[in-house]
């Protein structure tokens, strides 16, 4: 069941779900969560590949996962702060309301 190929397929599916979420959903918090889903899909891909390359690639894949997790946390912190500043000024978390600037 948990073969490397299956994990890779799952990772691709998760990534696609994340992309769909960012494009289709309008709530900024949901968009933020979709981005996290994309990053976790990447983590899954790294883990699967690290398993596949266990004898040749060293542990670069596993290290990468740890770094991605740390960076994702930092990114989420800054992202939520930006979202909060937006919400305070506009009282909304709808992406379509961010429309002050136009061509």
């Amino acid at each position: 069941m948990f073969t490397v190929d299956n994990c890779l397929v799952l990772s691709a599916v998760l990534f696609a779900i994340g992309v769909f979420g960012v494009i289709a959903r309008r709530n900024l918090l949901v968009i933020l969560m979709s981005i996290e889903v994309m990053l976790n899909a990447v983590n899954l891909a790294f883990m699967s590949f690290a398993r596949q390359h266990a004898f040749e690639g060293g542990n670069a894949g596993q290290i990468f996962v740890l770094i991605v997790m740390a960076v994702a946390a930092a990114e989420a912190a800054v992202g939520l702060a930006i979202l909060l500043a937006f919400f305070r000024n506009r009282q909304t978390a709808d992406a379509d309301e961010a429309n002050l600037m136009k061509n």
Partner: peptide
């Protein structure tokens, strides 16, 4: 606010692609 928000969402989105 809006500039930061748009830059953040699209930037994080593109980072995910780069990472994949």
């Amino acid at each position: 606010n809006e500039a930061a928000l748009k830059y953040f969402i699209l930037g994080a989105f593109s980072t995910a692609f780069l990472l994949f």
